[in-house]
Amino acid sequence: MISYLIRRLLYSVPIALGVSLMIFMLVHLAPGDPISAIAPADAPPDVVERLRVDYGYDKPLPIQFGLWLGRAVTGDLGNSVASGQPVAAEVMSAVGNTILLSLCAAVFGFTLGAVLGFVAGYKQGRAMDKIATAIAVAGISVPHYWLGMVLVIVFSVQLNALPAVGMGPGGSNDWAWDWLHMRHLILPAITLAVIPIGIVMRTTRSAVAEILNQEFVQALRAKGLSERHVLGHVIRNVAPTVLAVMGLQLGYLLGGSILIETVFSWPGTGFLLNTAIFRRDIPMLQGTILVLALFFVFLNVVVDLIQTAVDPRIKRA
């Protein structure tokens, strides 16, 4: 198991390298360079040139990549072109906020999705199944930024029950586990959970229905096991599939909440990305995407390891 773990971690090194190269290149494929975005249009050419040298944009691309990667490995993601502050510090505080939001959405969404999916799969074709399936289809189909705005209109504007923006009273960014802060989490977390609920529900439903149709379930009943024990077997069998989907969904939640974070002004990575794009703040953009991509790689390793632990048919050798 340990050697599998080490090997699996080593596999992710080339993946991470490839990802970082892609991220580096992607930003440079866009026309214009970052300096022309921050320098005023009437700035003297020699000033622009000096800025370019200061930020290292005068060097050939491979050298730029090498330098950037070398610094990135030591945790230095450069300075923001817009604010001049170190990118790493800003990204890390945003990552913390995003993880907070994503994990809350994940716990809520995965639990609800898995429970609904299990009930639907177990009661296939009956009323419970139809209701749960309708919820799942609605969850996947409704545009979640639209749902976010509707929730804001209902709960913040009309009912005045929950805050619409930010992560703390008075726009503070310091999190605390009290009601004053937690009420800020409710609307964005619910909105963010809607898609995972649908996807996890559908995956669980089809996995449960498939397992229940297998002969071994009949064999378990033929042994005289109680329905509770039979369901235990079913859960062990659907776990690998459902966990894999949950892992991927968690990846999407961490990386893909740009719209939600923008709608709710949640100071996370999505919000940061959105701002960086509008400011053409390339170091910030690269740093944020890199951190998010590495999250994804890391989550895949975790999912693989969990799957190997639950399903003996996946070889550990």
């Binding site: 297998q214 002969e215 071994f216 009949q218 064999a219 378990l220 009943r221 033929a222 042994k223 005289g224 096991l225 109680s226 329905e227 077997h233 062990r236 069998n237 639950v310 399903d311 003996p312 048919r313």
Partner: peptide
């Protein structure tokens, strides 16, 4: 009743299936 049936199955009457690969739960020893 379902409960009584559970007590009979596997103890008084038990069953061997056609395809043992399908009749064993694949994730338990």
């Amino acid at each position: 009743s379902d409960r009584e049936l559970g007590q009979v199955r596997g103890s008084v009457v038990s069953m061997i299936f056609q395809e043992p690969m399908l009749a064993f739960d694949p994730v338990y020893t």
